[in-house]
Simulated assay, not measured.
Amino acid sequence: MTAHHPKENTVPGCELSTYHDLAQVLADLPRLLRAERRRRQLSVRAAARELGCSFATVSRIESGEDCVLSNAVTVLRWLDEAEPTSATEAAQP
């Protein structure tokens, strides 16, 4: 029996298959945040309250400006709490 060797460049302890996948999620964060906020019918201020950050932070993330890692983690966890949506819904601006 052959030992299973993880794919090269896999992310240890993570369901994403590669660092590239993780980078893509982070690059898509502005679009994902805006889509989920709109799906929940929240204003930027209301989403900021739910996230526990400022209006300016949510606005910067949605506009694609650099955000600190702790804010990215907070947004990803908030997105994970969301009900599943179809790919079509998430792609709408």
Rank of each mutant, 00 (worst) to 15 (best):
residue 1 M to R: 10
residue 2 T to P: 08
residue 3 A to C: 04
residue 3 A to I: 10
residue 4 H to Y: 06
residue 4 H to N: 10
residue 5 H to V: 12
residue 5 H to Y: 00
residue 5 H to R: 15
residue 8 E to F: 03
residue 10 T to D: 07
residue 14 C to S: 12
residue 16 L to A: 10
residue 16 L to F: 10
residue 16 L to T: 00
residue 17 S to D: 08
residue 17 S to V: 00
residue 17 S to I: 00
residue 18 T to F: 07
residue 19 Y to A: 14
residue 22 L to C: 08
residue 24 Q to S: 10
residue 28 D to K: 14
residue 28 D to V: 06
residue 29 L to D: 02
residue 32 L to G: 03
residue 32 L to R: 06
residue 38 R to Y: 01
residue 38 R to L: 12
residue 39 R to Q: 08
residue 40 R to I: 01
residue 41 Q to S: 14
residue 42 L to P: 00
residue 43 S to H: 00
residue 45 R to N: 09
residue 47 A to M: 07
residue 48 A to F: 05
residue 49 R to S: 10
residue 50 E to V: 00
residue 51 L to N: 08
residue 52 G to S: 14
residue 52 G to K: 14
residue 53 C to W: 01
residue 54 S to M: 09
residue 54 S to E: 09
residue 57 T to V: 13
residue 57 T to A: 15
residue 59 S to T: 02
residue 59 S to H: 12
residue 60 R to Q: 15
residue 61 I to N: 03
residue 64 G to L: 10
residue 66 D to L: 12
residue 66 D to I: 10
residue 66 D to E: 08
residue 67 C to I: 04
residue 68 V to K: 14
residue 69 L to A: 13
residue 69 L to N: 04
residue 72 A to H: 04
residue 72 A to G: 13
residue 73 V to Q: 15
residue 74 T to N: 02
residue 75 V to N: 02
residue 76 L to C: 11
residue 76 L to F: 02
residue 77 R to H: 04
residue 77 R to E: 03
residue 78 W to P: 00
residue 80 D to C: 10
residue 81 E to K: 13
residue 81 E to M: 10
residue 83 E to S: 11
residue 83 E to Q: 13
residue 83 E to I: 05
residue 84 P to A: 15
residue 85 T to W: 06
residue 85 T to Q: 13
residue 85 T to I: 03
residue 86 S to E: 13
residue 86 S to D: 11
residue 88 T to W: 01
residue 90 A to G: 05
residue 92 Q to K: 14
residue 93 P to K: 15
